[in-house]
């Protein structure tokens, strides 16, 4: 499954890079969401994938029975998902405010912080 996951990640990353390079800021946002999914999957797959054996210690045992899923990347991914959501919410708020103030979603036209005039 690692092979297939790697290919899926490749597709996700390629799509997210293409979206993030778009002028429309909303497409950038979509790219960001796909990228964070890809990143989470990458961490998960790097810890190897074990089907059907959650990382739990059964009642009455001291250690898990047999080979179970790698718990460490799971823990890392779990928090990464929640933080990814926070990042997305912040970026979305940024996009929304930018639109409300500048009336455009075209990142080339968002020149509030770096006005064109000053570059001459």
């Amino acid at each position: 499954m690692e092979t297939l996951t790697a290919l899926i990640i490749g597709v996700l990353v390629a799509a997210s890079v293409y979206l993030m390079l778009a002028r429309n800021f909303m497409r950038f946002l979509f790219g960001l969401i796909l990228l964070s999914n890809a990143a989470n999957l990458t961490i998960f797959a790097s810890g190897r994938m074990t089907p059907g054996a959650p990382a739990l210690v059964p009642y009455g045992e001291d250690t898990p029975l047999g080979v179970v899923g790698n718990a460490l990347p799971q823990a890392l991914v779990l928090t990464a998902i929640v933080i990814g959501f926070g990042l997305l919410a912040f970026t979305l708020a940024l996009a929304f405010e930018a639109y409300r103030r500048l009336r455009t979603m075209d990142s080339d036209k968002m020149r509030y912080a770096e006005p064109k005039e000053e570059r001459e």
Binding site: I9, G10, V13, A14, V17, Y18, S46
Partner: peptide, 14 residues
């Protein structure tokens, strides 16, 4: 560029 980056990411993971 997107295809290159995507392909490389997949390759690195593999």
């Amino acid at each position: 560029l997107a295809l290159v980056v995507g392909g490389l990411t997949a390759a690195v993971l593999l």
